[in-house]
Amino acid sequence: MSYLPVLILVVIAIALGGAIQILSHVLGPKFPNPMKNSPFECGMPPLGDARHRFSVRFYLVAILFLLFDVEAVFFFPFAVTFREYLGINMFMVLEMAVFVGILLVGYFYVLRKGALEWD
């Protein structure tokens, strides 16, 4: 139930974005010509389209993000209960240190492999 206002906000955002685009479409004049309809390319006729291959680095960053972000998500429940467990025993803290250790091994492997080098 507490998510109802969020849903209302989403609906308002969609309605507003749609309304602005439709209004601007209706109100503005229309003078299309072939030059306006071609992709922008610094004033010269466009060379090819944008459906090209692009640097593999972008994929790498996305994959690394997925790996590390999933690991980072595990930090949140740990962080909330950290104080509570500290009072009981050190087991969870050591457990977390092992987890961070594994994460760091992965991080340094990626670093040494040069996956994060941009040249």
Binding site: G28, N37, S38
Partner: peptide, 12 residues
């Protein structure tokens, strides 16, 4: 001004 300008959706 932005509202009354041509709202061009390019062909491509």
């Amino acid at each position: 001004k932005a509202m009354f300008k041509e709202d061009l959706v390019p062909a491509h």
